[in-house]
Design a binder for these strands. Sequence first.
DNA 1: GTAGTCACTTTCCTCTAGGTACCTACTAAC
DNA 2: GTTAGTAGGTACCTAGAGGAAAGTGACTAC
Lengths: 118, 118
Amino acid sequence: METVPELACPIAPVVDLVFSRWTTPILWTLNEYGRQRFVELERRIGTITPKVLTQRLRQLERDGLVTRTYHPEVPPRVEYEISELGRSLAPIFHNLADWSKRNLAQVDEARSRYDENN
Amino acid sequence: METVPELACPIAPVVDLVFSRWTTPILWTLNEYGRQRFVELERRIGTITPKVLTQRLRQLERDGLVTRTYHPEVPPRVEYEISELGRSLAPIFHNLADWSKRNLAQVDEARSRYDENN
DNA sequence: GTAGTCACTTTCCTCTAGGTACCTACTAAC
DNA sequence: GTTAGTAGGTACCTAGAGGAAAGTGACTAC
């Protein structure tokens, strides 16, 4: 009998790692469009603020899912790339996209049904 | 060029659905231990409060991932069960557990390396 | 007549993630 | 000399999620 929530659910740590706020769009974009600069990420994701993007990128770098390359030029140039470890998540992302395609409509139906009956 | 974050990342909706706070432990527990009552869930998950458990269960029921059965007895008895739609997520959970087993150590190593170099 | 069980509900409170806005150094270009 | 551009950093503020604690209703057992 464990009181620690991590042990009640073995995937809790990886969920924290991969599916915390903003990390999915960042990893997805890096995986989809390859190595790119800070502003490119910012524009592609669209609604993220630079402060939060920096925070999340630092965290992902620390976790070894993203590689940061700093070029000391003027103006400065920094490139972000998904690491090999990060790329190993691609099949899971693919599975999720697949599940989404197949079942998201059922979720919408369930919601409509639930809302009709209050 | 889309500014909507959902379109920048096709799996954003399913991430919101499945990996928002507390939903993973709940779904995992229901999938692992089968149909069970409110208090059983509460005890197994351990640190969740009744208020939040109710909220999350309602949401999962609305999304069609969980089935709720109310028995009008005294004291009242309510049973929760994972739905077929919910069960279709099991392979994804399995993949995550698998990835976790294989790669979580590398994440720890990456963190140690990062923290050493400040 | 009081305590206990269950599945919540309600009220109040805290805490922190995230947003806004502004600042930084450095140089080129106008 | 001022404007632009990059990759952030910093200070301040707010909304909302979530926790704590107590209440509820209906019945039973003691």
